[in-house]
């Protein structure tokens, strides 16, 4: 487990996540009104990048088949996906957003 830098805090736009690749894992980091959240970027239904999806009210929608996930908890909110996405702890260190993986 290690902390990975994403970007300076001020570079984040709401509803537009930043993506970091760590080995085989792709992680999408979102800025919401109460902080930063990191989830796996890959939909659990079919292969699609959630960072390419529509994001609103703390939820992200898969760009292919409209499965929705709660960005804070990783919980799947509607079909066709049935499995939650991974979540990762985040923190801000010296003004830089990081996640732990």
């Amino acid at each position: 487990m290690a902390w990975h830098d994403v970007a300076p805090e001020g570079d984040f736009l709401e509803e537009i996540p930043k993506v970091v690749q760590v080995g085989e894992d792709r992680v999408a980091v979102f800025r919401l009104d109460d902080g930063f959240y990191a989830i796996s970027d890959v939909c659990t239904h079919e292969y699609a990048l959630l960072s390419e999806g529509f994001c609103e009210d703390g939820k992200v929608e898969c760009p292919l088949h409209q499965a929705c996930f709660d960005i804070r908890t990783g919980k799947v909110l509607n079909e066709p996906a049935e499995i939650d996405v991974e979540t990762y702890p985040t923190r801000v260190e010296g003004g830089v957003v990081q996640f732990q993986l």
Binding site: A48, E52, G53, F54, E56, E61, C62, P63, L64, Q66
Partner: peptide
Amino acid sequence: DNGREATP
């Protein structure tokens, strides 16, 4: 390649 815009 623009599924983000489907819901809007």
